[in-house]
Nucleic acid binder design. Structure first.
Lengths: 198, 198
DNA sequence: ATAGCACTTGAACATCTGTTCAAGTTTTTT
DNA sequence: AAAAAACTTGAACAGATGTTCAAGTGCTAT
């Protein structure tokens, strides 16, 4: 429910009735609604982080430069889309995207605590792939990747509507392949004249 | 306020006290809080649409293929970032990004009504640039562009934090240049082997 | 001048929010 | 078996939400 409706729109009572328990249980076991919310992240985010770390190690050990860039991109995307993931339906990916795009998320600090560290690893890996890039360029590249991933995760049907069903955000594997291809190619761009001119 | 906090978190009373008027005025003049919200889009979205249409016409008249792709990308990005825009501080761009990422937006149908038509024009322009692409590929490319743009518009300071201030979402012009470069390069990728394999 | 209309205002309304409380029930410890 | 701790429950709480209402004010056309 957090993934579908976001933190604010998901009320304690909706959660409770959906679970078939009294509302008071949320506050007893998790202290507050935000406590329950944080518990979700505390349980699931280590797995994402570990998958990213492994993905980056794999990329670092790849000698071929082209393949290496692709592996870095996939280290970001694959864990988020819940691919190669045991028994999870990708719901946590949706929650993650919602939290990242939630205006009130900065106040909770969940990303700062749990995802900024691995984000910095991603940035380092990118910087290693593109030694001639500035810190700013590396960061814009990272945000571009993140945004492309996010919009698919939070889609509510617009993608299927605009594409007449030929593109479907409910099929994360296909989505991941296409987005990874575009991002990989985008990162490899050598024509950096565009980024320095106005 | 809608741009900063989103639709739900922006309360009628906050709006009213910020404007120095009684709350009841919102309902008198706009019928409801959503009425006021829609009024913002009804006022501002035509300008965005027109800028996009002009941008796409410009792209269509460009003979050089490389430049043409870049113009299509910029037709999407430039109006959103509020560049070359008279007296507007880009607040509407933030509202737009919030609405696109809001879980409850599909219920309001604002994008369906006001932005799907121009989105389809964008898709057509993309399809014209890449005649060998499938409809799905064109759509994934479009969503990638949209997502990259969005994450910058809704940023609450994470970009500056991760980049130690070297990348700043408050500087939309620089952001636009970097993102446009990556996306343009990403779209031009000829190595479509990646999108057809697993 | 005066009637009519648009507009403004502050208070009230019903509803929903997250949370707390006191009273129970179950489980664990001694 | 008795005591203690952990857990469950339904009701209640204070506060905030969008909206409505009746009474007032200001402007405009006749």
């Amino acid at each position: 429910m957090f993934g579908r409706f976001g933190f604010d729109a998901t009320t304690s009572r909706k959660i409770a009735t959906d679970a078939g328990v009294p509302v008071a249980l949320i506050n007893y076991h998790f202290g507050s609604k935000e406590g329950l919310y944080r518990a979700i992240f505390e349980k699931r985010s280590p797995a994402i982080r570990d998958q990213r770390v492994v993905g980056l190690q794999l990329a670092r050990s790849e000698a071929d430069w082209d393949k290496r860039v692709e592996l870095v991109v996939k280290a970001l995307i694959v864990p988020m889309f819940g691919l190669r993931n045991d028994g999870n339906d990708g719901a946590f990916g949706r929650i993650l995207a919602r939290e990242l795009s939630d205006p009130s998320s900065e106040g909770r600090g969940i990303f700062r605590e749990m995802f900024d560290p691995v984000a910095e690893m991603m940035l380092d890996a990118l910087a290693e792939c593109f030694p001639d890039w500035t810190r700013a360029e590396v960061n814009w590249a990272y945000q571009t990747m993140l945004g492309a991933m996010m919009i698919v995760m939070m889609d509510n049907g617009r993608i299927a509507r605009l594409s007449d069903g030929t593109a479907d955000s409910e099929d994360p594997e296909t989505a991941a392949i296409h987005i990874a291809a575009i991002l990989t190619a985008g990162l490899k761009h050598r024509d950096r004249g565009q980024t320095s001119g106005s």
